[in-house]
Amino acid sequence: MPMPLARKLILHVPVSDEALLADFVKRCVADGVVLIAVFGLGCERIQRTIGALAVGGEIDQTFYLCTSIHPDETLDEVVDMVRSWEFEQSDSFEEIRL
């Protein structure tokens, strides 16, 4: 069984296989992820896909998952934003590549 994900994630795009996103979103919900910062070129489309999966799937509708997009920022800028995200400042973050 894999280790639980951190509560805040940076998802690097492009992803290797977008079919992996459905299970990724389910795992995020199961692990209590509260923020997915989508980073890189094409992040807007990936964010919309994540949103559609979260809303249209078998996911608990009381769960709130925040996403943000970062097409033009550096990784350092995204890391600073994720670290200082006001609701979960003390929580660690994790970088994800699918």
Score class of each variant (00 low, 15 high):
residue 27 R to D: 05
residue 62 T to W: 05
residue 2 P to W: 03
residue 90 S to Y: 00
residue 2 P to N: 13
residue 24 F to H: 01
residue 14 P to Y: 07
residue 4 P to V: 09
residue 83 R to G: 04
residue 15 V to R: 11
residue 97 R to E: 11
residue 30 A to Q: 14
residue 73 E to N: 05
residue 96 I to F: 03
residue 18 E to R: 10
residue 96 I to S: 11
residue 55 V to D: 06
residue 76 D to K: 11
residue 91 D to I: 00
residue 11 L to Y: 01
residue 89 Q to I: 14
residue 3 M to P: 12
residue 68 S to A: 15
residue 81 M to Q: 13
residue 1 M to V: 14
residue 79 V to L: 06
residue 8 K to W: 04
residue 25 V to H: 03
residue 90 S to C: 08
residue 31 D to L: 13
residue 95 E to N: 08
residue 64 Y to A: 10
residue 40 G to M: 05
residue 44 E to H: 08
residue 90 S to N: 09
residue 32 G to A: 10
residue 60 D to R: 10
residue 15 V to G: 10
residue 67 T to N: 05
residue 4 P to C: 03
residue 15 V to K: 13
residue 31 D to K: 13
residue 14 P to M: 05
residue 32 G to K: 13
residue 27 R to T: 15
residue 46 I to A: 03
residue 71 P to L: 08
residue 61 Q to M: 00
residue 39 F to T: 06
residue 84 S to Y: 12
residue 33 V to K: 09
residue 3 M to V: 13
residue 31 D to A: 12
residue 30 A to W: 04
residue 42 G to P: 07
residue 87 F to H: 15
residue 12 H to N: 13
residue 64 Y to K: 14
residue 27 R to M: 12
residue 68 S to Y: 06
residue 87 F to V: 15
residue 35 L to A: 07
residue 3 M to K: 15
residue 76 D to E: 12
residue 11 L to R: 02
residue 77 E to P: 01
residue 20 L to V: 06
residue 26 K to L: 15
residue 54 A to S: 07
residue 64 Y to V: 15
residue 42 G to C: 09
residue 78 V to Q: 06
residue 47 Q to C: 08
residue 39 F to D: 02
residue 18 E to K: 09
residue 14 P to A: 11
residue 80 D to N: 09
residue 70 H to D: 00
residue 67 T to V: 06
residue 82 V to T: 04
residue 75 L to N: 04
